[in-house]
Design a protein around this nucleic acid. Structure first.
Lengths: 348, 348
DNA sequence: GTGAAAGCGCTAACAG
DNA sequence: CTGTTAGCGCTTTCAC
């Protein structure tokens, strides 16, 4: 036989050393000493010895038995995007403190990958889901819900599905941004967005359109194909900006990565910001603070998003099993316009 | 009783439906049909039915039984740093294809947090470790090794500990960078680094020092306290650059985040790069490509690091249990100097 | 070739 | 108040 080197302490070892039953140990460890009327003396001895030998229950066995893993699956669009990375980090911190672990994965906004990840998380028996839904995963989310697994969506929601969600009022964000540019005297404001019809993107577009139409100005919208492939996107934006050089004095980008590609394109065209063209980005980024000139952004309330998401989820997680789940937490948070130099008209 | 809604298919269900024993099903599913001389006909029926009902074995039960979780613990310094994020992503992709899952956590280079995370991963029964070691965790790593858990360190190693590791030849990187600056005609090259004495930081410093001393020039080293708190660091660098304004015409930063803070400081001092001061950063970053001017960097071979790490780990993971582990894979990879405008002397 | 059965380590009735 | 015991779902030996 192989020489077993590992010698983890088991609940058995504890019980026999202390000459009590393993049930007693288990009960004490799970805080059920009182309700099982175990003497304080015994409880204390158990706790002390457990501490002494550094006994840790085997999570696998525990989960197999209880059906609870204390793990939450976090499905985001792209964990390398600072927005999602920060939200994920905040959620993880909060969850950790309350005894939950997070496992995350990125979908790259691909429905197939989203489905695969959700299914993987289900296999792993996560206790709850936090999802940034891509299009076309209504059925999967529906399934999770039917299984009574607590779930919260964020950043966007799935219209027609009764779920909890936490989103941001993107329309109000782009509306304020457009108004700000108008006040600064820019008149030909373009809006660069993706071809996505997801709720959050449509809202951002709507806010922009509304602001322009209120002033009787015609919106100019450029939609690009969402992709992580930088060069073609930069080229496309380069072409767009070049073509509209004379008919466009400001651009609002609907996501931080579009802005970054846009800045690269503007750079290559050797245009000056904001003299030749003003820029506002939806969503903040380190780069925008550091860029010369600093870029005006529509900032999302990251802390608040994370806090709301985890609060809703944990509340449902703590619900007793037979309690019917209600998924009617719909939170909409405001954005903040952070004005920097890229959108402020210079004195001539 | 609570109304059990969930109805996962179990191996039992498969067996009874097919009127074979659960052992047969298990054997077939684990590819041991042949060696258990199960008829092809039966094997096929099993596989077909399993496919049909979409049966997935319960990982928890499987792991509890086999002692293998097929999960790898990845402990990095800071997952929000693009270098670590990219390596992690590549590792995850590779591991996934070979049936392993990754769980990651950041240590922020804090020994206490590192220890906690390693212990958490052990509790979770990870099959292997990939660690970016902070100082002072020699004992924990020693423990993992003693338990025969496959482990690979990267980015740096723990001197005096016989472990597998994958690192980069940082000394050669900074040496080449310094030489490049000297060739460009810069003579007063400073080196900004942290107060860390970890192997990778010491190597980077050594390469710089060597290049200068070979030319009979005196090194000028600024050490700052490593921290994620931006403002004090920026202020410290601001002060340093200001003080040495006349005695320093180039700076090499030893990490990407130091460079970012440095750029912010240079910005605030309204110095021109490279006219007033040339800049080279160790480690690349999106920001450095996009910055005006683009920043010269010492680039690390990210793909190669990830590939080596995962290859070494998976090889050990596939080793039969009774096979004594040897931890003598020591890989040192070269860096590449990517020259951009920030370090090229302009025509006067 | 196949099936029965013994656990992996833990929890939680239930019976004393 | 404490101990016995029956599983959670799966793998794997060993007897048929």
């Amino acid at each position: 036989m192989s020489s077993k080197v590992k010698k983890r302490t088991l609940i058995n070892d504890i019980a026999s050393h202390l000459e009590v039953s393993i049930a007693t140990v288990s009960l004490v460890l799970n805080g059920k000493a009182k309700q099982s009327r175990i003497s304080d003396a015994v409880a204390e001895r158990v706790l002390k010895y457990v501490e002494e030998v550094g006994y840790k229950p085997n999570h696998l066995a525990k989960s197999l038995r209880t059906g609870k893993t204390h793990v939450i699956g976090l499905v985001v669009e792209d964990i390398s995007n600072p927005f999602f990375a920060t939200v994920a980090w905040l959620i993880e911190k909060q969850a950790f403190e309350r005894g939950y672990r997070i496992i995350y994965c990125s979908t790259d906004n691909d429905p197939a990958k989203s489905k695969e990840l959700i299914s993987m998380f289900r296999e792993r028996h996560v206790d709850g889901f936090i999802i940034v839904p891509s299009d076309g995963i209504e059925d999967e989310v529906q399934n999770i819900l039917r299984e009574q697994t607590p779930t919260v969506l964020f950043d966007r929601f799935l219209p027609g599905l009764a779920t909890n969600y936490v989103v941001v009022d993107g329309a109000q964000g782009t509306y304020k941004a457009a108004q700000h540019l108008l006040e600064q005297g820019f008149r030909n404001i373009a809006f660069v967005t993706t071809n996505s019809v997801q709720t959050q993107m449509e809202a951002r577009l709507a806010g922009y359109t509304k602001a322009l139409e209120e002033r009787g100005l015609a919106p100019k919208v450029k939609r690009v194909v969402a992709s992580k492939n930088a060069e073609p996107l930069i080229a496309e934006l380069h072409a767009f900006i070049q073509e509209n050089r004379d008919s466009c004095d400001a651009i609002i980008f609907s996501t931080n990565y579009l802005s970054i590609y846009g800045l690269e394109a503007i750079n290559r065209l050797q245009l000056q910001i904001p003299a030749d063209i003003a820029v506002v980005s939806y969503d903040d980024h380190d780069l925008f603070r550091l860029y010369t000139p600093a870029i005006t952004v529509i900032a999302q309330p990251i802390e608040s998003i994370a806090k709301n998401v985890i609060d809703i989820l944990l509340e449902q997680l703590q619900q007793p099993n037979d309690h019917a789940m209600v998924n009617d937490n719909r939170i909409v948070l405001p954005t903040a316009l952070v004005v920097r130099k890229s959108s402020v008209k210079q004195q001539e």
